[in-house]
Design a protein around this nucleic acid. Structure first.
Lengths: 193, 193
DNA sequence: GATGCATACTATCAATTCGATATATATTGT
DNA sequence: ACAATATATATCGAATTGATAGTATGCATC
């Protein structure tokens, strides 16, 4: 019942995030996709299939306006701007006191069934994940070094979160991976018997 | 092109997880939902809307079989069992060397825009998240205490992961939340001016 | 004795999201 | 000359989410 406010925006969904990006200035869908790729997408992914429909809905409901900009050579741009109504909707989205924080890990689901896998398979999965984490950590450190201090407290907090959690992830894996490849009692017995 | 193997299973999706659960013995969709609720769902969520269509597809492709069990009083149960073909498909699912690990955080997306929020809003969001994390940690500790050692190395690894990461999350928030409510230079100037 | 709630069990629907793909053109690299 | 990359739009099928619906029993509260 409650929560259904201005033009169907009630949560921190892709629409709300697009509105937030527009508070920094005008942008096209393409620009926003790049923003998702470079920073946002690491903790809140979105592709064209989400962004373009989101912008269409926002425009239909008057939360953003756009201008068709003809370019020579390149295709036209639709440059979006947030409206006053859009700002209100954004504030409502930010007012949600219990925003979700969801994990969906095929990695953990796979390792849950480690007893059905060979030690080689387990090692490969883990080594690949460690390599990914290390790449991510390098990327974050680069991001933090170019971020100018004083602006974007939120961005700094989130980047720090990413670094902290990725390190914790790496530490946990390195210290506990042997749990997964260690033979269980039953196997030891059958090997000895 | 590649990856499209036995009956449309190529990743660690809900179908594959259901097959994995069935290696522990027969179960109904309802049973599996309970399993998702109690453990699996914390890192790989699935509701009825995913589970029932998944089981229907698996049955259609011969990866599981089911028996309609009539019960007095209660509604009928469809009790599923994994087939040999299903075991093969599961092994293919587990053979994926790069299983994903995805986060989707409305929490971090919200705090990215902390400069648009009041300090009270920020504090509420953070306090609520800390309370959630503490509940989660209690739940995990209970899970670990009832888990018998020697069986389910994977489950132990995953539970340990959950505890480790939730603690890291809590520590980061507690040590860095002041970044978000600390006034920025511009605000200090305008307050003094 | 009736009303409402919890549990047990199935299943479906609209809305949203994902990942891939289509369409076009210009620039840059080899 | 040819291939790849960047710019920019948009759509489609498949999967997932979250809510809801239906049917039946037991149990407690009013």
């Amino acid at each position: 019942m409650s929560g259904q406010q201005l033009a169907g925006i009630n949560l921190m969904d892709v629409k709300t995030v697009c509105l937030g990006m527009l508070t920094d200035g005008e942008a096209s869908g393409y620009d926003m996709k790049k923003c998702f790729e470079s920073s946002f997408g690491h903790f809140f992914p979105a592709g064209y299939g989400s962004i373009y429909p989101a912008l269409a809905t926002l425009a239909r409901n008057g939360l953003v306006e756009f201008e068709q900009v003809l370019q020579d050579g390149k295709p036209d741009r639709k440059v979006y701007n947030i409206t006053e109504k859009g700002r209100e909707a954004l504030m409502e989205g930010l007012a949600n006191a219990n925003p979700a924080h969801k994990l969906r890990s095929e990695f953990l689901a796979t390792l849950w069934f480690a007893h059905l896998m060979t030690a080689e398979q387990i090692d490969t999965v883990i080594d690949n994940k460690l390599a990914e984490i290390n790449e991510f950590l390098e990327m974050i450190e680069e991001f933090q070094s170019i971020e100018c201090p004083g602006t974007g407290q939120g961005a700094q907090f989130v980047a720090g979160y990413g670094k902290h959690m990725a390190s914790a992830f790496r530490n946990y894996i390195e210290e506990n991976r042997k749990l997964l490849t260690k033979p269980v009692l039953a196997d030891v017995k059958s090997a000895a018997g």
